[in-house]
Every structure is written in structure tokens, then in C-alpha cells.
Computed example of a mutant assay.
Amino acid sequence: MVPRSTAEFTAEDEGKHVLAPDGEMVGEVVRTEDGTAFVRACPELLAGYGSRLTGCWDPSGVFALDESAVTSDAEGHIQIKPAERPEPDTLQRTR
């Protein structure tokens, strides 16, 4: 797999599967426009990865993929990073 930087998405990315860090498919790139990839999400696999898609989630819609969430790009698929979790010391206590 090739590491992905902040390169723009192209028509060559259309049809690629978007994979979670564990390899499960969370969606497919259905179109690209102005360097942005638009993904149709798999509703049953999206749990926990919604933060990697911009905008409100609607199972009938397509969403812009946050290119900063992409770790690698290979023929046929795009891999996204695991969700970032704050360090325990940075959590604030609420009452």
C-alpha cells in the first residue's frame, strides 16, 4: 500500500472501497469532485467511523471523505486511520 498524504482524490479513486483500520468495508467512493472523494457509507459498518465523514450521516446520501483520515491508498481500496482518542491526562472531570 502507498501512504497517502493530503493529495487530492481523482476519478481513479471512484469505485474504491473505504476500509476501516480492521479491514472492514465502511463505504465506497461513488464520485470525486474538485479533489474530494464522496463516499456512500455502509450503514451497518459505519458505527464508530462517522467522524471520518464530514457532515451529518444520512444512509441514503453520500459524504465527503476527510482526506486527513486516510492512511493509505491501494488499488481497489482506501484505508482510514483508527479514531483518535484523547490521552487520559487530557480528560476533564465533570460534575
Results as ranks from 00 to 15, higher is better:
T90E: 15
V2S: 11
V39S: 04
D66N: 15
V18F: 01
R31E: 12
I78T: 04
L65H: 03
A7R: 09
E84W: 06
E44I: 08
E67R: 08
D22L: 01
R4F: 01
L91C: 14
F38Y: 11
D22N: 14
D73V: 02
W57R: 13
R52Y: 01
R31L: 10
R95G: 12
D89E: 09
V26Y: 01
M25R: 09
F63L: 11
H77S: 04
P3L: 06
P3Q: 09
V70L: 05
I80F: 04
P59K: 08
S5F: 10
R52F: 01
I78V: 15
F38G: 03
S60M: 14
C56M: 15
D66M: 05
A69L: 02
W57K: 12
L46K: 08
A69H: 01
R85F: 00
F9G: 02
V29E: 00
I80V: 14
G50I: 14
L45E: 15
G27Q: 03
E14N: 08
L91N: 09
L19S: 00
M25W: 09
A41S: 06
A64S: 14
Q92G: 13
M25C: 08
V70I: 13
E67G: 05
A64C: 14
D22H: 04
T71P: 00
S68L: 11
S68I: 04
M1D: 05
T6N: 10
G48N: 14
A69K: 01
E44S: 09
D89A: 12
D13G: 15
R40D: 06
G76M: 03
A74Q: 07
C56N: 11
Q92R: 09
L19A: 02
V18W: 00
E33T: 12
T94H: 11
V26M: 11
G23A: 04
G55D: 10
I80P: 01
K81A: 05
A11M: 10
V39E: 02
D89W: 07
Q79S: 14
G35F: 12
D34I: 07
C56Q: 12
G15N: 13
D73Y: 00
V2P: 11
R52L: 06
L45K: 12
S51C: 13
L65I: 06
K81I: 01
D22E: 10
D22Q: 06
R31Y: 05
G48I: 13
C56F: 15
D34R: 15
S60E: 12
T32Q: 06
R95L: 14
T32S: 09
V26T: 05
R31A: 07
S68P: 03
K16Q: 15
R95M: 11
S72R: 03
P88K: 15
D13Y: 01
Q79V: 10
V62F: 08
T36V: 14
V70M: 03
T94D: 10
Q79K: 11
A74H: 02
T71Q: 00
E24G: 13
V29K: 00
E44Q: 10
R85T: 02
A83Q: 11
E8R: 11
D34S: 14
D89R: 08
A74L: 04
M1G: 09
V18N: 01
V29R: 00
C42M: 05
A41N: 02
A20V: 06
A69Y: 00
A83R: 06
E33I: 08
M1A: 13
E12K: 13
G23H: 02
